[in-house]
Amino acid sequence: MQDRIPILHMSNFLLVTIQVDMHDRLALQLQDDLTSKISATGARGVLIDISSLEMVDSFIGRVLGNISSMSRVLDAKTVVVGMQPAVAITLVELGLSLPGILTALNVAKGMELLSRD
């Protein structure tokens, strides 16, 4: 199984597209990698595209929340984009509404949100 999710660095932003069914360690690895990379590059924004994710459970939800909080502490903004409607319905019924996480419908809207101020 894959052991790392690639992170792209573009001007002031870090871009991540999650295209695999993440096992728990892979999600935690992404959390660590993103945090180090924000600190190393001084990136001001992180965009995480989850449009290929067919499921977000409480573990992945927690990791997304952690990434959001950690980036905020490091003076960067995180936006999660592209959640599939079925995933959104399931998440809310599960009891998870991702408080504190910025979301946008797609990559273009997410970039717009990050580029503001």
Partner: peptide, 8 residues
Amino acid sequence: VDQTKMVT
């Protein structure tokens, strides 16, 4: 939606 709920 039901698939996603069951998988989750």
